[in-house]
Simulated assay, not measured.
Amino acid sequence: MRSKMLSFRRSTVLATALASCLTAGVAQAEVDTIHFLIPGGAGGGWDGTARGTGEALQKSGLVETISYENLSGGGGGKAIAHLIEVAEQSEDTLMVNSTPIVIRSLSKVFPQSFRDLTPVAATIGDFGAFVVKADSEYTSFNQLADAYLENPRSVTVVGGSARGSMDHLVAAQAFKAAGGDPRMVKYLAYDAGGKAMAGLLSGEADVLSTGFSEALALAEAGEVRILAMTGPERSSAAADVPTLKELGYDATFVNWRGFFAAPGLAESKRDEFIAVLEKMYGTEEWAKVRDRNGWAEDFRPGDEFVAFLEQQEQEIGDLMRELGFLR
């Protein structure tokens, strides 16, 4: 009997050791599931940010299951309202958003603000960019600015967001820096970056105002050229693209992007999201996604994110009043 028990114990120890060997080096997921809610359609900056972040989290083994849902409409307001409505069933949901949640709240595009959600973290900064068709008559931003100064209505700008929102605001800021009237921008609004790109290629507009990461993806296809970007210096992701500043226009703009959870989310769950996003920055998978998109890292978690949003509300409100978008 004793011999059998010893044999059983030996077998158990060997089985445990074998299991340890088999699982050694296999990372355990930090979070089981994240569902990304995207307030715009395919091809836009929100879409790229959510899918790029999800790609890095899943390929690095930090999150086991990733899913995505595009819910466009109302300048992002439809997705915000939906997340608030289904808050109790959405503890695994992260909604991507960016500067427009501040702009559109200020301009009353929708009644909610970041205060109606649970801010989790800002994660990246993406600059603005101005894009033309590959065969466009404009070969530099200086030419485009000169045409605007001569006749503002001769230059049609298209963007993947509503009038008075970020794509419009960035264009107005650039033309103001060139000496033009920012209130005269002829702007065509689409509900997503992909649709705005189609509008440019069809000839409905002369220039697309968009995010730099989106512009890089479009330029790779060979159908467009990037005239300028709004960063303080050139990006290694596209070293041939000049900044507005080096072209002689005193204008820079960075669009933060980050994630929000449902209202009433437990602080422990929020901290779990923050921890996994912070850990992501140290992975090779994230480095590939970040460099591919020309993103700048800009991590502001939890309460720091809330304080930043409050500051943004004040600064962007002042800029919008200066450019004539708010009274």
Rank of each mutant, 00 (worst) to 15 (best):
106 L>W: 03
137 E>K: 15
115 R>W: 02
142 N>G: 14
81 A>E: 14
135 D>Y: 09
95 M>N: 02
163 R>K: 13
88 E>A: 13
103 I>V: 11
126 D>Y: 03
83 L>Q: 11
72 S>A: 13
70 N>Q: 12
93 T>F: 11
106 L>Q: 05
140 S>M: 08
158 V>F: 05
178 A>S: 14
146 D>A: 15
164 G>Y: 03
115 R>E: 10
172 A>Q: 15
128 G>H: 02
92 D>A: 10
177 A>Y: 08
144 L>Q: 13
163 R>Q: 12
73 G>D: 05
132 V>Y: 14
122 A>L: 04
75 G>V: 01
82 H>W: 04
90 S>R: 06
139 T>E: 14
110 F>N: 01
139 T>S: 15
144 L>D: 11
167 D>M: 03
175 F>G: 10
110 F>D: 01
127 F>L: 02
91 E>M: 08
142 N>D: 15
156 T>C: 09
135 D>P: 06
83 L>F: 07
135 D>R: 07
104 R>G: 01
173 Q>F: 04
154 S>R: 07
156 T>A: 13
140 S>Q: 11
160 G>Y: 06
116 D>C: 05
92 D>L: 08
171 A>D: 12
76 G>T: 00
165 S>G: 00
157 V>Q: 00
77 G>M: 01
91 E>L: 06
144 L>H: 14
140 S>H: 10
155 V>Q: 07
171 A>W: 10
74 G>R: 00
105 S>D: 04
149 L>W: 03
159 G>Q: 03
123 T>G: 04
126 D>R: 04
178 A>C: 13
78 K>A: 06
150 E>P: 05
123 T>K: 07
98 S>Q: 02
118 T>W: 12
77 G>P: 02
124 I>E: 11
99 T>A: 00
149 L>M: 07
135 D>S: 10
111 P>F: 01
124 I>C: 06
140 S>I: 08
145 A>T: 14
131 V>P: 04
135 D>G: 08
69 E>W: 09
137 E>I: 11
148 Y>I: 13
94 L>G: 06
162 A>C: 06
143 Q>Y: 11
174 A>V: 13
124 I>H: 09
135 D>V: 06
96 V>W: 11
131 V>F: 06
86 V>Q: 11
156 T>V: 15
142 N>T: 15
162 A>K: 10
174 A>T: 09
93 T>W: 13
127 F>A: 04
76 G>D: 01
116 D>S: 04
145 A>F: 12
115 R>P: 02
128 G>Q: 01
176 K>Y: 05
110 F>K: 01
84 I>F: 03
130 F>W: 00
175 F>L: 12
78 K>V: 05
112 Q>P: 00
116 D>F: 04
105 S>Y: 02
101 I>A: 02
152 P>Q: 12
117 L>G: 07
170 V>P: 03
81 A>V: 09
151 N>F: 06
164 G>R: 05
116 D>K: 03
96 V>T: 10
124 I>S: 05
142 N>S: 15
71 L>Q: 05
81 A>T: 13
97 N>M: 03
163 R>P: 10
173 Q>N: 09
161 S>E: 11
125 G>R: 04
143 Q>H: 10
105 S>H: 08
145 A>W: 11
157 V>H: 00
133 K>E: 15
127 F>W: 06
160 G>Q: 11
173 Q>D: 12
104 R>D: 00
145 A>S: 13
79 A>L: 07
177 A>R: 07
99 T>L: 01
70 N>W: 09
87 A>L: 06
77 G>V: 01
74 G>M: 00
